[in-house]
Amino acid sequence: MKKIGVTLLLAMWVLAPILGNAAEGESIMIHGGANPAAMPCISCHAADGKGMPSAGFPRLSGLPAPYIEKQLYDFRSGARGNAVMQPIAKALTDEEIKQVAAAYSNRPKVNVNHPNNTNPVLGSGAWIAQRGEWSKNIPECTLCHGPDGVGVGDAFPPLAGQSPMYLESQLNAWKEQKVASTPKSMSSSLPATRRNDPNHLMQHIAGSLTETQIKAVSEYFGSLGDSIEPFDESQHRLR
């Protein structure tokens, strides 16, 4: 009995820094950061961390911790512009960012309901997702975001099961904003509000997609749904 107690104590001592981060992070999700301006995450990203799709608040559950950390730092610096998130990211401490990112990455990762094995139809959202439009140098989304858009590594976040409204707003955020009816002397476009894509991989893709394509591909990934089965790393995930 004593032996078990010692082992347990030892295990806790070893694991504490890892579990500690996530546990602290769970608390930040519910209560917010030490600074009251760092509002509780759950008010927009929901208690389960799956967001509020119909309001365009994204899912954070299961996203890689380095990805979430990077986004929060980019909100802070303004590399990613967003009226709601920028003040929150500025109010969170570096330590809190680490903790909350760890907590969300510990939550369940999205798993696609029915892996897609059918051939997409030209011009559909599924087509852009699985085939792209190479004549405009648009690779299929799944080439980098993984089969069914489940996400790859720390840099390519999952698109599957994400809020379509969110995906659409992000694709538009990467575009220069066209300003209608400006005098000819002034520039007719504003810089993109999101400029934090590694190696500028997203900017030209977003800029080359049409409005219709953006809507369709966002709907497609949003519609892939989330399986109740946990994500299984030992499975085949075909292109």
């Binding site: 980098c144 790859v152 590594g153 299984d232 499975q235 085949h236 995930r237 075909l238 292109r239």
Partner: peptide, 23 residues
């Protein structure tokens, strides 16, 4: 290191999802 690491990795090892390689 500037252009390729993000997908192909520091040691050229590529990246997988499940058992299949994506990069």
């Amino acid at each position: 290191e500037k252009q390729c690491v993000i997908c192909h990795g520091e040691n050229g090892e590529g990246k997988k999802v499940g058992v299949n390689y994506v990069f």
